[in-house]
Nucleic acid binder design. Structure first.
Lengths: 247, 247
DNA sequence: GCTTCTCAATCACCTAGATTAGAAGGGCCG
DNA sequence: CGGCCCTTCTAATCTAGGTGATTGAGAAGC
């Protein structure tokens, strides 16, 4: 099943087998994309959305001077541009970090899905609002944490999200972000990202382990430095949601 | 009509009279709130959402040390916590800046509305994604602009949003944010917010005009300093959306 | 074999913004 | 009326992070 990871760790148990099958059957085709390619461009009229099956995708806003700000990272189980269903054009670009496999679903099909399965429709809505919750947490991090804390927060979030979809092995972060990418996500320069990684290394929090990946040595420390509380991911913790069905 | 400003300047023209009436009739009651009070608390189970009729509301995340990060400002025409419809609990707090009037709509009623008017449902979804788009723009600002630029960006956004709902008179920003609030939105200290306001004043961009309001003297300059391009508000510009009806 | 890239890593120096501490002005309350 | 907040505004000092430049390792290409 292509969409097996959709809302895994959150509301997937709340979807009926019929709904899960309907979502999976809505996929028109899958596409492969090479690393560091653009998938969806800001401003282009779009008529389908992509669900990420495998790989990592990055969402970013570029300013006139060519400076790039990451606004999101997507991992398997995420829709990368479901916003486009209700907005028709994206305000930012979506590109690949690694080689990636995506499942394409047309907006017409999504409308049919929602008409046939209103509860699934709410789950789709929910999934776009998870993005918004993550955005808010990034705003918090950019506004209130120093460079080291921002990087730690990002790493802690990625670990937690991978854990929810059972793609975290407990020690290696399988997302080959470059220090430049961390810098673009955290609003700092690559030089300073490097300095921050050094202190994280010296504190024994993590260390590089080849191919751009990080070995996580002390997750608790990383969470503390990033003031991370994962409840905003709505998987576990005080905000966790059991059902979207009306009481 | 209480909800007359909902999606005004964006998709309101796309709503039928029937849909507009249905939304208005879904309002259970209106509530008044005094300035600087909390309306919705993070983590509380909620069963209705609030549409802002009059006044200004602020949304913020507080960290353990009592530091506050604004993550959104709401003006008339906005739902302040429609996210809560699909998420049941908010990850942040919503409070008033000024005295405010809100229309309360139960989640049960929203479900009925969406069932009866799927297109209105998509418009409601769209409105929550506008929040996400604004969040992304704030992330961009926090990551890529200096203090003066961040403040300018926020002011430019507020002007543009007020203009969309026709609440901007062309010279006075009718939102009495304190310098402390700007600081909490922009991730800087109040002292530095003050310095930045001084340079904005010295450049002839704006000046205070009593009761915490700002007189806008050179909007073009403010937009330039904040690298502001309002198309992410989906009102005018390259991303503007004409209809949510299927083609 | 060489060159050419890219990325991590580091240094020296400089600036934007934080921190701390007050002063001045207005509104509200007793 | 005096006293007390709260807010704006300012100055002095300090630091996190930016800038620019260099080095070395590894991979890609010729």
């Amino acid at each position: 099943m292509l969409t097996a990871l959709f809302l895994k760790g959150r509301l997937r148990h709340d979807l009926s087998e019929e709904e899960r099958n309907a979502l999976d059957n809505a996929v028109a085709r899958t596409v492969e994309i090479r690393p560091r390619m653009t998938l969806v461009e800001r401003g282009k009229l779009i008529e389908h959305s992509y669900y990420l099956v495998e790989g990592t995708m990055l969402r970013h806003i570029d300013d006139r001077r060519g400076e790039r700000q990451l606004v999101g990272v997507n991992i398997p189980g995420d829709f990368v541009d479901l916003h486009g269903y209700a907005m028709k054009r994206l305000d930012h670009d979506v590109g690949s970090l690694t080689r990636a496999t995506l499942a394409q679903i047309s907006h017409r099909k999504i409308t049919e899905l929602i008409d046939a399965f209103p509860h699934l429709g709410r789950a789709l809505w929910f999934s776009t609002l998870l993005d918004a919750a993550m955005h808010r947490e990034w705003i918090f991090g950019l506004g209130r944490l120093n460079a080291e804390g921002r990087i730690a927060h990002l790493i802690a979030e990625l670990i937690e999200r991978l854990r929810l979809v059972e793609l975290y092995d407990g020690s290696v972060l399988p997302i080959p972000l470059l220090q430049r990418d961390y810098a673009e996500a955290c609003g700092i320069t690559p030089v300073h990202a490097n300095r921050s990684f050094r202190t994280l290394r010296e504190r024994g929090a993590l260390r590089p382990c080849g191919e751009g990946r990080l070995e996580i040595l002390d997750e608790a420390l990383i969470r503390r430095l990033g003031e991370f509380d994962g409840s905003y991911l709505y998987g576990t913790g005080e905000l966790a949601l059991r059902t979207l069905h009306d009481r």
